[in-house]
């Protein structure tokens, strides 16, 4: 009997495919999830850098849109909370597996 490895199983990797598009299956769960998390982190980082830029523009007087800065900060804040939630979920799943009796 062949027990299939985790590589071809179903898990977070399928819930969050690395590259959108239904046909493209990630090579492995670890790779797919890693790529997804990496992209998410990059996106959140972009939003935070954008918020930083807006703050800088406001304080140097280049821009006078106070609300734009606040909204950029809110966007980065909410996205970061989303990232934290995803990370917590992934970590919970990992710990759940590690707690499993073998």
């Amino acid at each position: 009997m062949v027990i299939k490895g985790l590589q071809s199983g179903y898990g977070i990797g399928q819930a969050f495919p690395a590259s959108g598009g239904k046909g493209a299956k990630p090579a492995s769960i670890a790779e797919g999830t890693g790529k997804f998390l990496g992209e998410l982190v990059n996106k959140v980082n972009d939003l935070q850098m954008n918020a930083d830029k807006e703050i800088q523009k406001l304080s140097t007087g280049e821009s006078k849109g106070l609300h734009e800065v606040m909204l950029a900060m809110e966007k980065s804040g909410v996205s970061f909370q989303f990232l934290t939630q995803v990370r917590n979920k992934a970590l919970d799943a990992y710990q759940e597996i590690m707690r499993m009796q073998v």
Binding site: G65, H67, E68, L71, K75, V78, S79, F82
Partner: peptide, 19 residues
């Protein structure tokens, strides 16, 4: 994320009202 859309629309309105 789509909730950004409504934030962007609100932002445009705030700019307009500021003008």
């Amino acid at each position: 994320m789509d909730f950004f859309t409504s934030l962007d629309i609100s932002s445009s309105a705030m700019s307009a009202e500021r003008t």
